[in-house]
């Protein structure tokens, strides 16, 4: 059975158990609506949900882009310039020590109720994993490759070595950071929307919750889950295509595939 089938069976099982629980327990719909009720609400509010999903989706993508650009730039600055190492490293650590959720009200206060505060929130939350993963990758270049480059260039072309050896070698590390980033970016966007907004799925959830429209809240939640999964798998797929040379092994794998004997 392939992965898609297994996923479908798992989801069907969970939904079935949920529906049966709702029937048998007779729990009030505003406490826990059944999956069927959620599905009909989703269908009847499709355009309303789509409109807000587009906003949240845009916030996630822009946050991912901004956080990646700033994170990659920080890692490159830290590896290239000693002063940057001394000044940026503490900032990097502090950016993670301060809970981003606690900053959300401030960001809304400073940047307003629109998308800017949510994009910043998502960017802040992914900045640390991207910057540290890429920095780790840049620091762990195979010393033999650097020795080889040293004898080839006489140590005269550090920028070429960074561009042609260090950065490509660090891409698998950056990819790990981006995967984490893609998984957590939706959290940043939605937390931002909860604190203060007039649009987006977080706003829909908060609004629906206040009016006891629990079915609508679940429909928004399901939409958010679809966006989060789509973001993660798109990023993961793109990264695999960009770094085809990376050998992946799992426990139990006898040998990396593609190996020849000669």
């Amino acid at each position: 059975m392939n992965a898609v089938m297994r996923g479908a069976v798992t989801i069907a099982g969970v939904l079935g158990a949920w529906q049966v629980f709702v029937w048998l327990s007779g729990v009030a719909p505003f406490m826990l609506p059944g999956p069927w009720a959620v599905a009909t609400t989703w269908a009847s509010h499709a355009s309303y949900l789509a409109e807000h999903a587009a906003i949240t989706g845009a916030e996630i993508l822009l946050g991912l882009g901004l956080g990646t650009v700033v994170g990659v730039a920080s890692a490159l600055a830290i590896i290239s310039f000693a002063p940057a190492r001394r000044w940026l490293m503490p900032a990097l650590v502090v950016s993670q020590a301060v809970p981003v959720f606690a900053l959300a009200p401030l960001l809304v206060l400073w940047l307003g109720y629109g998308m800017a505060s949510k994009v910043t929130m998502a960017a802040l939350i992914i900045y640390f994993p991207v910057a540290t993963a890429f920095l780790d990758g840049l620091r762990r270049t195979e010393p033999g490759w650097l020795d080889l480059a040293e004898t080839m260039t006489g140590g005269k072309r550090p920028f070429a070595v960074l561009l042609r050896v260090r950065i490509p070698a660090a891409l698998p590390g950056l990819a790990s950071g981006l995967r984490v980033g893609a998984a957590v970016a939706p959290i940043g966007a939605v937390v931002g929307e909860w604190v203060g907004s007039g649009a987006g799925l977080g706003y829909v959830m908060l609004h629906a919750n206040g009016r006891m429209q629990t079915d609508l809240m679940f429909a928004a939640l399901a939409t958010l889950a679809v966006i989060a999964l789509a973001t993660y798998f798109t990023v993961d797929w793109g990264l695999r295509r960009m770094i085809p040379w990376q050998i992946e092994t799992a426990p139990g794998d006898a040998k990396p595939s593609g190996e020849l004997r000669a």
Partner: peptide, 25 residues
């Protein structure tokens, strides 16, 4: 300098690995 390990860059094909020196310079 040639090492016990081949030190080929895994993202470059055989030909590009052979031409690495010129590329770096």
């Amino acid at each position: 300098y040639m090492d016990q390990r081949d030190l080929l860059l895994p993202w470059l094909c055989a030909l590009d690995n052979v031409m690495l020196g010129a590329r770096l310079r």
